[in-house]
Nucleic acid binder design. Structure first.
Lengths: 217, 217
DNA sequence: GTCTATACTTGGATAGAC
DNA sequence: GTCTATCCAAGTATAGAC
């Protein structure tokens, strides 16, 4: 599936800069998804955000849905590389929580997870979209799993809490927090949670024998 | 806001059985929300599910959005009373996890949380809907908070993890798990998480001094 | 209260000029 | 590759008969 297209309007969603217009449309799609949600991300709305016209969407992507998926691809790639960078120097659980806090806040500011959440929820509306979206979430789970294994792998907790399962929960929690925060426009409760996690981090570090640097900020 | 209506088509969403048709439409709205998502929950689709016609929706509820909110009200009331019943006999964390597991599975089967998730995500599409949905989530948070305070209130963890914040996280996680499970049609990972929680429950019970009955199933 | 018919709007998608 | 114009399907909402 998702075969690399031959005909116009069915080009692959994963090659980089074929025309500049593609990127323009993808960016506009992301913006529209963030501001108006899946339901508001119509060809007309996206075209307006891109400062062009809707015909281009069908010429370049074949359908609105395909453009939306390309937008999800772009966000996914962008975020995962950002995450990798942020987690490079993470050794302890405390470090992990720090990194995760920063990531969460910037994701929330930029509205990236909104795009993810809207696509997941919107997938219910059109048949077949679900599988495409699910495939694009896989990397997020793998990434979370890596991070967890690196900082908790040694702990006895990894017996009771296998990394893949925890990764699943982390992605779910991340998604849910973003939805709730976005819903009532208040990120306070979510931020508080990260603060609590930060306080508990030394406990986990002690369990796994990792160095537990400074605690209070 | 949400004033009790006087004119036809603006009746209150919280009175019980004025016509039978109202309930029919609300049930159809729930069903449609579950099967086709927010985007697919059009007046036409709902009317068809109800075996009637769309004009009735506007007569009884004034707009599709109002009907959808009434559907959310119905689900919310139904679930919260169900939860109350399930948690009546909960004393220990182990009990709590057992109850939560059962609740989660039946919610997933019945698709109730789908309704919630779709409404939250769909709220981005139409202005003003967000606040209405947020108001209807409040009770879920309060409920979770109560349950947490009852079974963890004594533990030293309640210092590091205040019940309101944990409740927020629980609702977010619940929401995220349902979205992911629904997305790839596999509840396995979510169920596994509950199993892990069950294994860890005695630990928490020990902390708060509650009796920790049997552990293995 | 319920139905049919219809006005009006928006959205996906294509044709064809440039 | 990009634009305008347009077709068609689907949606919200209302009018008016029953």
């Amino acid at each position: 599936m998702a075969k690399s297209g031959s005909a116009a309007g069915m080009r692959r969603t994963d090659d980089v800069p074929p025309s500049g217009t593609r990127k323009l449309l993808v960016d506009a799609a992301i913006e529209t998804l963030k501001q108006k949600g899946f339901g508001g991300a119509s060809a007309r709305a996206i075209a307006e955000a891109a400062g062009s016209n809707q015909a281009l969407i069908f010429y370049h992507f074949g359908s609105v849905t395909n453009l939306l998926l390309a937008a999800l691809d772009a966000v996914s790639a962008d975020r995962l590389s950002q995450y990798s960078e942020a987690l490079e120097s993470v050794g302890s659980v405390g470090d992990l929580v720090d990194a995760a806090t920063g990531i969460f806040e910037s994701d929330l500011d930029a509205g990236y997870i909104t795009v993810l959440a809207e696509m997941i929820a919107g997938a219910s509306s059109s048949p077949g979209l679900g599988a495409e979206v699910a495939a694009r979430i896989g990397p997020w789970r793998s990434f979370a799993q890596d991070a967890i294994e690196r900082s908790l792998g040694g702990s006895f907790l990894s017996q009771a809490l296998p990394a893949p399962d925890v990764a699943y929960a982390v992605v779910a929690l991340y998604l849910g927090l973003e939805m709730l925060s976005h819903l009532d426009g208040d990120r306070g409760p979510a931020i508080d949670l990260f603060a609590h996690a930060k306080h508990l981090a030394p406990l986990f570090d002690a369990m796994s024998g990792a160095p537990s640097r400074e605690e209070g900020r």
